[in-house]
Simulated scan of single mutants.
Amino acid sequence: MNRKLIGGTIAGAVILGGAFGADALADQFKTVGIQDQAERTENAQANSPVQQNQDENLLTLEEAKEKALSEFEGVVESIELERQNGRMVYDIDIDNGPEDVDLDMDAVTGEVLRSKTDWDDDDDRDSDVNSKDLLSKQEALDIATAEFTGKPEEIELDDDDGKMIYEIELKNGEQEAEFDIDAVTGDILNMEFDD
């Protein structure tokens, strides 16, 4: 009977010890999983464009525009900040009469990484407006918002028969307004309101 009691006690201890060991091992895996997830989250945040933008000393849009126009003549039509091959880059489009220039500029150093010039077959402009004579987008927006209070939906610089014009769309709730503003004089050439 002592043998049965000793054998049962040993068997119970082995089973109980195995259960505690398995539970401890499972906890260890859970802890590792949590640490791995935390590390992945931390690494993702460190590599996100938002985090890196905070860490980098990026050129402002105006600085990028000035650098681009110091190397290429014309009017800056658009500037977009994007990530290319692990670095922040300004994609800048410049209209130079019959030519369009598309360039990529390092957003930190201002170095032109790539430029491509295309002949603009659709361009019927004969405007000799210097980009320094143009109002900024903000100045044009200020003129429009003095007439209609709203959130800007679109601001575009366009050439209309040799005249540079800002086309601006504003929205306030259900109401919308569209403006054509002379990019040199600031005169409102056209206003349309929709409910």
Rank of each mutant, 00 (worst) to 15 (best):
K4L: 12
K4C: 01
L5E: 10
I6L: 12
I6S: 08
G12N: 04
L16M: 14
G17A: 14
G17S: 12
G18S: 09
G18P: 07
A19I: 13
G21D: 01
G21R: 12
A22D: 00
A22L: 10
D23R: 14
F29E: 06
G33R: 11
I34G: 02
D36Q: 15
Q37L: 07
R40P: 02
N43M: 11
Q45D: 09
N47F: 05
S48N: 01
V50W: 02
Q51A: 13
T60R: 14
T60W: 13
K65H: 04
K67H: 04
K67T: 04
S70W: 03
E73L: 10
G74W: 08
R83T: 07
R83K: 02
N85F: 10
V89C: 02
V89N: 05
V89E: 09
D91C: 02
I94A: 03
T109Q: 05
S115K: 04
K116A: 01
D120C: 10
V129K: 11
K132Q: 13
D133H: 07
L134A: 09
L135W: 11
E139G: 09
L141A: 13
D142I: 09
A144M: 10
A144T: 08
T145Q: 15
F148Q: 01
P152Y: 00
E154L: 07
E156C: 06
D160H: 14
G162R: 10
G162A: 08
Q175N: 10
E178K: 05
I181A: 03
I181F: 03
D182T: 08
A183N: 12
T185L: 01
D187N: 04
I188M: 02
L189W: 04
D195V: 03
